[in-house]
């Protein structure tokens, strides 16, 4: 399974639309695309996870790195349209408490 990464750049905002699976094979590619975006001061990086149905802990690692990077560079990370299965992972790991995650979970809880 692959991961497709589409980046749309607006003035102060980048929208990263993901589609596929985030695992040990695809995570490095995601990290490579996502991290530079978080290094621009004042920027909002919105990650759309509507079409991501599987993510493992390697994927979490990428988002944790991105979060740390936004704190260093004064930018913002937002995760939207998260599927229930992926949301569970963020919830278990306590990351829902410290990350900006759109509360309207796909598939509903």
């Amino acid at each position: 399974m692959n991961l497709t990464i589409d980046v749309t750049n607006k003035e102060h905002k980048s929208v990263v639309s993901l589609s596929g699976e985030i695992d040990a094979f695809t995570a490095p590619k995601l990290k490579e695309e996502l991290l530079p975006l978080t290094k621009e001061e004042g920027k909002t990086v919105e990650v759309d996870l509507n079409n991501v149905n599987y993510m493992d802990s390697t994927g979490l690692g990428v988002f944790i790195s991105a979060l740390k990077s936004t704190k260093e560079h004064d930018s913002e990370l937002k995760l939207v349209h998260m599927q229930e299965r992926v949301h569970r992972l963020f919830k278990i790991t306590g990351l829902t408490e410290i990350m900006n995650i759109d509360s309207t979970v796909q598939g509903g809880i």
Binding site: I64, G94, L95, E97, I98
Partner: peptide
């Protein structure tokens, strides 16, 4: 039990 993964913030 609620709790953040190890290694993200100092004061968890």
């Amino acid at each position: 039990a609620p709790g953040l993964v190890l290694g993200v913030t100092k004061d968890a």
